[in-house]
Amino acid sequence: MKILLMTLKKRIERFSDLAAIPESWELVFADFETDTRKLLTIGGDADVIFADAMQPVRKKLIDAMPHLKMIQSEGVGYDWIDIRAAKEKGVFVCNNAAANSKAVAEQAVLLMLAVLRRTVEGDRMVREARQIEAKSNWSLEGIRELWNCHVGIIGMGAIGQETAGRLKGFEAKVSYYSRHRLPEERERELRADYLPLNELLSTCDIISLHLPSNAETKNFINLNRLRLMKKSSVLINTARGEVVDQDDLIIALKEGLIAGAGLDTISPEPVRPDNALLHLPEEISERITFSPHIGGVTEQAFKKMHTFAWTNIRRVDEGKRPENIVNGL
């Protein structure tokens, strides 16, 4: 069994139990190499690709690897993997579903609090010795507490449910919209009620996105939907940048259609210096809190994801069907 690792070697060494990997397995490291010819030179005869969730695994690479049986995403996402090409070749594509749901849920709540409390702006003003100015002005403008907010969750999978569970501790009112409604017992457990999408957008103070990135969800939050939101509301995105139309988000912020945004991810990634979200006037940019797509990259999440990945690779080595298959094989 030969495994082509398209992720950081140092990350594998830190979060994987290498002593538990069979000595007969050969590991070859490509780090973040993206050139197909170089990847084929490094591990073109590999049986498995273990790839960072943001690392492209293209059709040319898949088609050129004669022994390839499985592509394992290091994380939950798999939108950078050509799943159609893999399916055509009979190659399993697997992800780490729900492995980082607790971590991402924490990040969502963090961003809610950071935007409500204007954390980034406040940090800057204290460093500029403007603490009294901030405290005086903000006390007059009003700072809202999370318990006093109605939070709307869009996408009630593992991460959405973990987010709702954490919001119980803040005593926030929680509603959700999802393609598939939860059982009533689970709704009661989470203290979350179902609302149609338009009603959720128009009534909630915070909208938290927990959608996968695919053709159906691309630009899911657009200007029409932003116009439905309250002018005092906040948008939180810990999913993928592609689910928000960023040009429309800029319009919404400039026109005061919403109050602010907390974004763990923007599009495209890696973030480029010319991204329009990074070049807004100061009075607009201060209403956005960014984090560097770290919601799911905690130590605990990586250990859990790596443990699952190596177990899944072992299944393939033993001739068994892997788990968390996402390309319909």
Rank of each mutant, 00 (worst) to 15 (best):
G169W: 01
L182W: 04
R117S: 10
E189I: 02
A85R: 00
P196N: 10
A108P: 05
G157D: 08
D123Q: 13
W80M: 14
A103Q: 09
K102Q: 07
N198R: 13
E184H: 10
A97W: 08
E189R: 05
M65N: 08
R188F: 08
G157L: 08
A86Y: 09
V151D: 02
V76H: 03
E133D: 14
L113G: 05
K173S: 07
H67Y: 14
V151N: 01
S139F: 11
L116C: 12
E88A: 15
E145Q: 14
S139P: 03
I62N: 07
L110Q: 09
E171D: 12
N95R: 00
I159W: 02
A158P: 02
A103K: 10
F170Q: 06
R130D: 13
G142P: 09
N95W: 00
R127N: 14
R124C: 12
S178M: 04
D123W: 09
S175K: 02
S136M: 12
S178W: 01
V174H: 01
A129G: 06
L140W: 09
E189G: 04
L197R: 05
V91P: 05
G75K: 00
E133M: 06
E145R: 14
E187L: 03
T119C: 08
G142Y: 10
I154S: 09
S73L: 11
G75Q: 04
C94W: 01
P66L: 13
L190H: 00
R181E: 08
K87D: 10
N95A: 02
E133W: 06
R186V: 15
N100S: 11
V109F: 05
M156G: 00
R166Y: 06
E185K: 13
V126D: 05
A129P: 02
G155P: 04
G75T: 04
K89Q: 14
L111R: 03
A108L: 06
I153F: 05
S101D: 04
I62S: 09
T119E: 07
L111A: 08
Q72V: 09
W147Q: 14
C149L: 11
Q161K: 01
P196H: 09
L167N: 01
T163Q: 03
A114S: 15
I81M: 05
K102M: 04
I62P: 06
A105G: 13
R181S: 07
F170H: 07
G160D: 05
E189L: 08
K89V: 12
V93W: 04
E145H: 12
E171T: 11
V104T: 04
E187M: 04
E184R: 10
A108Y: 03
W138C: 11
I143H: 09
E189H: 07
M70P: 04
I83V: 15
S73M: 12
A99Y: 01
R188L: 11
D123P: 05
A172H: 08
I159A: 06
